[in-house]
């Protein structure tokens, strides 16, 4: 059983040593191991290949594999930093590390900026913000007229685009978030502090493996 488990881990594409991942993230080794339990659960929900496919990510987020959502797509794309269409274990842990309560605020601010920079131009453009507000309205019960949406976007831009060039750069974004810290509230997941309680079984598996 132990040998099988050990071989199985080595064969998983993208599997990385928990001690290395722990050294590069706010997680401890046992927390990384617990995250592997969560990763296994998500990555085997549709295709059991040790990788999180977009449908599996959607299923984990929404309990519905077909539910498309602009923001979930953006999160998936940022987690998939190799840009190969799947999330590997190392990518999963490093990306979730940004959401750890102890992760540097600067990392959270930058991550949120990249999230909202839909077209990877290095700026949040007005059209992107407009598109994101429409996407949010689509998924919620909030009904606002086009005029009101335009006003909301204009007002936000007039507050955030301090240079007045019609786009928000990273410096403007940092300044805007410092005045509105609630904007990165969703970049912190309190669950990540209790991950070993939520997903403890890997630790037990490791002990079996070590004694083999």
């Amino acid at each position: 059983m132990g040998c099988f488990h050990s071989k199985h881990l080595r064969q998983i594409p993208g599997y990385e040593d928990p001690t290395i991942l722990a050294s590069e993230t706010p997680f401890t080794v046992s927390e990384v191991e617990a995250l592997y339990e969560l990763f296994k659960k998500i990555s085997s929900s549709i295709i059991d290949d040790g990788l999180i496919h977009k449908e599996e990510f959607q299923l984990a987020l929404f309990r519905n594999r077909n539910r498309r959502n602009l923001f979930a797509d953006r999160i998936f794309d940022l987690f998939d930093y190799k840009r190969n269409g799947v999330i590997e274990f190392g990518e999963f842990v490093r990306s979730l590390g940004v959401f750890h309560p102890n992760a540097p605020t600067a990392d959270k601010v930058t991550f949120a900026f990249r999230l909202y920079d839909l077209r990877h131009t290095g700026y949040i453009e007005r059209e992107e913000l407009y598109e994101m507000v429409l996407a949010l309205l689509n998924e919620s019960d909030l009904a606002l007229s086009d005029d009101v949406v335009e006003m909301i976007v204009d007002k936000t831009f007039s507050d955030a685009d301090t240079k007045g060039d019609g786009r928000i750069d990273l410096d403007e974004w940092k300044e805007f978030v410092s005045k509105n810290p609630s904007l990165i509230k969703n970049m912190t997941l309190p669950y990540l502090k209790d991950i070993t309680l939520a997903f403890p079984s890997f630790v037990l598996n490791t002990e079996v493996e070590d004694s083999d």
């Binding site: 969560l38 998500i42 984990a60 987020l61 929404f62 309990r63 959502n69 602009l70 923001f71 979930a72 797509d73 953006r74 999160i75 979730l96 959401f99 999230l115 909202y116 913000l129 994101m132 507000v133 996407a135 949010l136 998924e139 919620s140 606002l144 009101v148 006003m151 909301i152 976007v153 007002k155 936000t156 507050d159 955030a160 805007f176 509105n180 609630s182 904007l183 990165i184 509230k185 969703n186 997941l189 669950y191 991950i195 939520a198």
Partner: peptide
């Protein structure tokens, strides 16, 4: 807040797609 004074980023940060806590629900 009236809709016009809403912060657009505040609004979009409420998206379910950005709420990763559901990944941890069993």
């Amino acid at each position: 807040a009236t809709p016009v004074t809403m912060n657009a980023f505040e609004l979009i940060s409420k998206s379910q797609g950005l709420n990763l806590s559901s990944l941890f629900e069993k």
